[in-house]
Amino acid sequence: MTMPLLTIEHLTMRFGGLVAVNDLSFDVHRGEITALIGPNGAGKTTVFNCITGFYKPTEGRLSLKHPDNQTYLLERLPDHHINWKAKVARTFQNIRLFQGMTVLENLLVAQHNPLMLASGYSILGLLGSKSYARSEKAALDKAVGWLERINLIERADDPAGDLPYGDQRRLEIARAMCTDPVLLCLDEPAAGLNPRESLELNALLTSIRADGQTSLLLIEHDMSVVMAISDHVVVLDYGVKISDGAPEEVRNDPRVIAAYLGVDDDEVAAVEAEVGL
């Protein structure tokens, strides 16, 4: 077992009377791909929004431990610090690219904070300093590197909104990776992809894991993706964790099967007894 990168303890999120996530605890381990799965409305995206600062959790603690042992309590950070200081990046279920900006510009916006420092909060940049020009070149090289990696270099100067759906998904992942995250949260990255694109996505995600800098947490409905690439699966249902473990364990867990498929009427009592309801 590797070191936990992100430890979620007793996370609860209530919206008025609705309890979207209830007393959820799990770990995301360094260098692994962790999948968060569950039926529709189970609270997966709410967990993501808590981790990435879009929601402030009602209760609970989200502690992120960097390789240099610096610890960040995500629930206490202002939202832009979660990416900039704690190095947690995310993508969205409905793709959120800057559609009217070019593919290249999308990746440069992602490097906003380091470039802002390099441009002396725009003052050095306005004066045309050499050091800013160097940083800008470095940012451009990094963006080009990612575009080559996701096979979009030919379309660098096209508006992001013009790309086909699958390319937009990959570009969004590349944009998140341009912020040098230690944890990348992917909200349904395979949604709407055809089987070939889905395989390409698997290859991209495993190559990011192989780089060793970034651990991944993903929400996914496509079980072929989840079972093929994830090291660790957490199953949510109605905001409660019902299973947590390696993919094979989770696949055979009767609670998970019951949550996904339901059970026959005459088996309800038996399953309930088994899962302890």
């Binding site: 879009f54 990416n83 990046a89 995310r90 959120r96 906003h112």
Partner: peptide
Amino acid sequence: IACRSLGIN
């Protein structure tokens, strides 16, 4: 929203 997710203040 995408800006916030990229750490832009």
